[in-house]
Design a binder for these strands. Structure first.
Lengths: 367, 367
DNA sequence: TCGCTGAACCGTAACGGTTCAGATACGCGC
DNA sequence: GCGCGTATCTGAACCGTTACGGTTCAGCGA
């Protein structure tokens, strides 16, 4: 806990009213409804306010009475600072911020302790609604959000929560499209790097059981899309190595790529479930002296600016747009009879990191 | 305004107490001080809460009573989305977020309308303190923040506001150091790109009067540091062209570089008051077919990650650290007798974008 | 049996506003 | 002179909670 605490207000609406010998209503009106009192009196009120150091109506008290806080809460699974570090999150948040701005709403980043679970921050947030960005299905903070009697919009994951709007993309279809691009090039020996699949800290190979038990639907879907695409050309998913990393960073991905290629040196393409992971794979390839795409194809997912700079083959999703839509769904006035589900389009971006595999590897499928 | 409004709470602490035939205090204690009532009664309360759909104590009402909101407000001059777009801001915010997280405080991004001035959002923010990031001296939102009876910490600018803590770097000294690097290399014909110097939208050359009247102390100081450094080798500041841009973007900087080099083709070095501006200058050089640093030296300021990737000569400041210190200053418990001023160190980073000017240009000073 | 103690629980008074249904006075048309 | 609309201001209820200073009562030692 912090030592921060509001100083006692030097003057209140009531004390100001008493000083002037008018009612509290009048003082309130001086601030909120100038047309409800004569101009001279209003001036007198405002002048007295300045003289007594009255800073205007207290926002919290006003919120209590009006039942609106003027802010939207944002819940992330990761540490708060992640919001400013991950480019996919940043893009989303930029769009969300645009929507909030347009509606004059604040955006409250709710602190979640990465260490031990503590949902008090969620329960304490003075907000009119929540945006939940890509959290685990059974995230306790998320469950706490659902307890709160305010509207909620989920971005990406979890899926299909009752009474909650959602915006996202078709991860499975996007990945399927990418998979076809790769199989079309002739790739059959494929390795995968993916983000965390479950609550606990785990780094290493993710077998099928772990994949199916994943509590992150986005990862589940992206893997499923790839599996679908490979099945179309007869590649058995059981033989496809998947390496999981708990941390979503270039460094972590680099080590994952090392782990993958060490155990499976014959892989011709590394499919990553995010661009960040792909950037790590690229770095490992450079480190190891492998040429991309001649020796190795690398693909990502998301379409962040860094990926464009690296000319990465990836599946682009409209990150900023997703944020803006999320905000608008939450802030939109009017009745919403049923939870809305918005799916934004994805687009395959073929960059310079994917090409046909070497002749020796092509159409090989003898794992 | 948004249509978002809290649904009426299905049950309140009072109704729950009435239902159970206990006092409101007891219900409150069931949530906040479990040791103040017997375990069985607490269970009974919590059970009834679930049954009646009572979502736990209302955060706003609690805030009113306890006089703490559990959140810190953040004020930016720019549109809210800027926070996620500018890498220097992002670095700062990441550090700030770390500090907030550690203290369990939320971070409320206060929406400021870029179009017409409207300070209601500042007055409406339910926060225990404000962080003000790099705003103009006479920014009306900032003045509104000062009206609020909560502690405030300013980052970078404005300077020397009474009763307000500040964290920043010595911009003047940092730039002086950079200037000496350039003059040491032999540069005498120098052109400058700087960020906006005043409130109104203006793009173009900034004469000395405009420089001196700048309401952005950071820009003022950086220019002054350069002036000092040039004065040391006898270069008259009056002859140094300074091009100003209202928008802080690579695109804007590119056009500024064009403007500068068109009017002053004999410039051997472009000094930019930010890395973003420098990246724009680099892009213009590439576009125009100029080699950096052979044909042209380009320098930045800040030390953002993008600058490192571009191997830019710049002055690095500890962005993340600055954010964390700002947060800690605000959240720190204990009396603060007088406003604190923290100045963090800067460091000259010599990259590959600065070198000796061509022989023909060296030591020339005959403008 | 008495006095004392500590645990458990309660009543009241804020916290600082907003809101709505009046009250008052005033000007105006008839 | 009277009814009536209008502009201006007031009174009181209400928002939902927690802080504070009690009261009650079972248990215990003497």
């Amino acid at each position: 806990m912090s030592g921060l605490q509001n100083v006692r207000r030097p003057a209140t609406l009531a004390s100001l009213a008493a000083e002037l010998g008018v009612s509290r209503t009048t003082v309130s009106n001086a601030y909120n409804r100038p047309d409800q009192l004569s101009a001279p009196l209003r001036t007198r009120v405002l002048e007295a306010a300045r003289r007594l150091g009255y800073p205007g109506p207290d926002p919290v008290a006003r919120s209590l009475r009006t039942r609106k806080a003027g802010a939207v809460g944002l819940l992330l699974t990761e540490a708060l600072s992640y919001a400013f570090r991950d480019p996919a999150a940043t893009g989303f948040l930029e769009g969300l911020a645009l929507a909030c701005e347009a509606a004059g709403q604040g955006l409250l980043l709710v602190p979640v302790s990465p260490e031990h679970v503590d949902v008090t921050a969620v329960l304490q947030a003075g907000v009119d609604g929540f945006i939940v960005y890509s959290v685990r299905e059974d995230d306790p903070h998320f469950l706490a959000v659902l307890e709160r009697p305010v509207p909620t919009v989920v971005c990406d994951q979890p899926h299909g929560v009752e009474g909650v709007d959602r915006v996202g993309v078709d991860d499975r279809a996007g990945m399927l499209c990418l998979a076809r691009h790769l199989t079309g090039l002739g790739h059959r020996r494929i390795g995968v790097l993916c983000m965390r699949l479950g609550a606990g800290r785990y780094d290493g190979p993710a077998d099928q059981e772990r994949q199916l038990g994943a509590t992150y639907p986005v990862q589940r879907d992206r893997l499923a899309g790839l599996r679908d695409g490979l099945a179309e050309v007869g590649v058995d998913w059981a033989g496809v190595p998947v390496i999981e990393r708990f941390l979503h960073s270039v460094d972590a991905a680099e080590s994952a790529a090392a782990e993958l290629l060490t155990a499976h040196p014959d892989v011709s393409a590394i499919v990553c479930t995010s661009d960040i992971l792909a950037l790590g794979a690229l770095r490992y390839a450079t480190e190891r002296g492998l040429s991309v795409p001649e020796d190795l194809t690398v693909t990502g997912f998301d379409g962040v600016p860094e990926a464009a700079r690296a000319d990465l083959t990836t599946v682009r999703q409209p990150l900023l747009e997703k944020g803006r839509v999320a905000g608008e769904m939450l802030l939109e006035r009017g009745e919403r009879d049923r939870p809305r589900r918005v799916t934004l389009p994805t687009e395959l971006v073929v960059g310079g990191t994917s090409a046909e595999p070497r002749a020796a590897q092509r159409f090989f499928s003898g794992w």
